[in-house]
Amino acid sequence: MARKRIKNQPVLRNWAEVDAALREIAEKEIQIEEIEGEMNRQINGIKISAGLEAKPLQDRIDKLGKDVKEFVTEHKEELDGKTMTLNFGSVGFRLSTSVIIPKAKEKVAEIIKSLKIRRMTDCINVVETVNKEVLKKYGEEEIIKVGARLKKEDVFWYETAREKLKDMHQ
């Protein structure tokens, strides 16, 4: 038996049907907005409730943590090395080292210059990317010469008039 090719026929046959489809899409979008709005209200309520329920517990943890820190600081010399292991956890001190870079751009520029002079370029982050929006402004010939290509296509879009539909229902 020979294969038959079935041509896809558009479901919508005229502009009135397209307009009706857009109306239905807008109605469904409005319903989704309402569902998501209710969901967000419920989530916010649950977050507030959980926060209120957890607050006394977190406050107690913070207070106990401060008390533990104060005690361990006063008895630092009793630690075995820098750590004391107890039945329900461990306490101690560790040396933390961090490099502080000033926020002023001029100071950062001076540091970078100084790093370059000292050949410490492994300490400098350099990120290079292609700015497609700027490249797009050049001619197609230039774009091809640098190894990129220009893709042109008609992209379908639609937009519903939700506000108009909302006004009709009010």
Rank of each mutant, 00 (worst) to 15 (best):
H75M: 13
Y158M: 09
P56A: 05
D19I: 02
V146H: 03
V126F: 07
R94A: 11
I46T: 01
E153N: 09
M120R: 00
R119F: 12
I35N: 08
M168E: 10
E159G: 06
K47Y: 05
G139I: 13
K7C: 01
V11Q: 10
T97L: 15
S114E: 11
D154M: 10
F88K: 11
V99A: 05
M84D: 00
V72C: 02
K63F: 15
A21T: 00
E24A: 06
L22S: 06
N44A: 12
G65N: 13
E159F: 13
V91K: 11
E24Q: 15
F88T: 14
V134D: 14
T160N: 05
N14A: 15
T97C: 09
E133I: 01
K7S: 12
E163A: 03
M39H: 03
K28Y: 05
V134W: 09
A16G: 14
I100W: 01
G89I: 14
L64A: 07
R94K: 14
E163F: 05
I117H: 02
K82A: 15
E110Y: 08
N131C: 09
G81Q: 01
I25H: 14
V91Y: 06
L115R: 00
R94I: 02
L115F: 04
V155G: 04
K63T: 15
T85M: 10
C123E: 14
W15S: 08
L57T: 09
E38S: 12
P10M: 10
E142R: 03
L150G: 01
I144T: 09
V108Q: 15
I48Y: 09
A20H: 10
R41Q: 06
K28P: 06
